[in-house]
Amino acid sequence: MGSRSELQVGFYSDKCPFAEATVEAAVVDAAVVNPRVAPILLRLHFHDCFVEGCDGSILITTGVQDAEISASAHQGVMGFDVIAKAKAAIEAQCPGVVSCADIVAIAARDAVALAGGPTYEVETGRRDGRLSSANMAWRMPQFHDSVHTLRLKFFEKGLTEADLVLLSGGAHTIGTTACFFVRDRLYAFMGTNTSDPTISPALLPSLERQCPKDGSPMDRLLLDQVTGERFDVQSLINIKNGLSVLPSDSILYDNNITKSVVDFYSVDKSSFAEDFAVAMIKMGRIDVNTGTEGEIRQVCETVNPMFLLYLQSAE
């Protein structure tokens, strides 16, 4: 895989000067139709980077069997239409120049800014991966992981406990989740018939109303029940106060190291946005393809025709 040093801000300045503006326009247009687009694109970037690196492989849905997106760990990941629209517009300007992986990274940055979060410069120069398999997603962080497992999965990607808190609990300042992911916390915690005792009594009745025991597992609720429509540090304050929704967020207060990070941002709120941006940049460097590695896919949903023919001939 390529070195992060081969990424650079403004990689397309000469080759495709309007690339980033084109992605931003696609994100803004999508937000008009779907106000949830910001957390959707943020999650898409996270899921792409944590499986085989930030290579756009999660976008590959045709021409392969058991595509990466079919993995259970990617359940509910969306945003492909926004990336496809941006890619098509860029290809009309600069064919074969801008990777799908870079478009995902730029779109996530623009989505965060659109939700009131920090603006930051995205390093670009990634090339697209050619492989897509559900089996590759087995080390994806999941909602039921212990804090020990989450730490290990982040360490494997060169990320710290602070990055874990920022990119997991902190990123949940915006967006929604399905009741499927919280039902055990409410009705069968640790195999019992009771709720998670760390859930604040002030929050529990509301969660039970939004996700009744006999309700649809696909009903959705805000990840941040206090200021869920705005990008801020509230999701970390929620963890401290027993007001977090997902189990993978609440357990960040069970470990001394991650607890100290949560406590820090709960007090020093001004540092959250800046440090979140730094963590996003750091995540965007995970196992990237650069130089002559990978390819620049013509269409994000499939590898380029010549490589696809090679794969088919090898079967």
Rank of each mutant, 00 (worst) to 15 (best):
S250F: 06
S260V: 04
T227F: 10
P247S: 12
D232P: 00
K213G: 00
G228N: 09
G215M: 04
Y253L: 08
S250I: 03
I237C: 03
K213N: 10
R220G: 01
T258S: 15
I237N: 08
L203A: 11
S248V: 13
P217M: 08
L203Q: 13
N256Y: 07
S250H: 10
P247K: 09
L246R: 08
R209H: 07
N241R: 12
L222Y: 13
L252C: 09
Q225K: 06
R220M: 14
V226Q: 11
P201Y: 12
L252D: 04
S250K: 08
E229I: 00
K213M: 09
L252T: 12
E208W: 02
G242N: 10
N255M: 01
L207T: 02
Q225N: 09
I237K: 14
F231L: 09
S260Q: 13
D232A: 07
M218L: 15
K259G: 01
L203E: 09
R209G: 03
K259H: 14
S235D: 02
R209F: 06
S200T: 07
P201Q: 11
P205S: 07
Q225S: 12
C211H: 05
S248F: 10
V233S: 10
G242W: 10
S250L: 13
D254K: 13
L203M: 12
P217R: 09
I257S: 13
M218Y: 14
T227Q: 15
P247F: 03
E229P: 00
K240R: 15
T258R: 11
D249W: 08
L207R: 05
Q234E: 14
T258Y: 10
A202I: 09
Y253F: 15
K213R: 15
I257V: 15
P217E: 11
D254Y: 10
Q225I: 01
C211N: 07
T227H: 14
A202G: 06
G228I: 05
D224M: 03
N241C: 00
N255P: 00
V245G: 09
L246V: 01
S206T: 07
N255G: 02
L207D: 06
I251F: 04
A202N: 14
R209I: 03
D254G: 06
R230S: 09
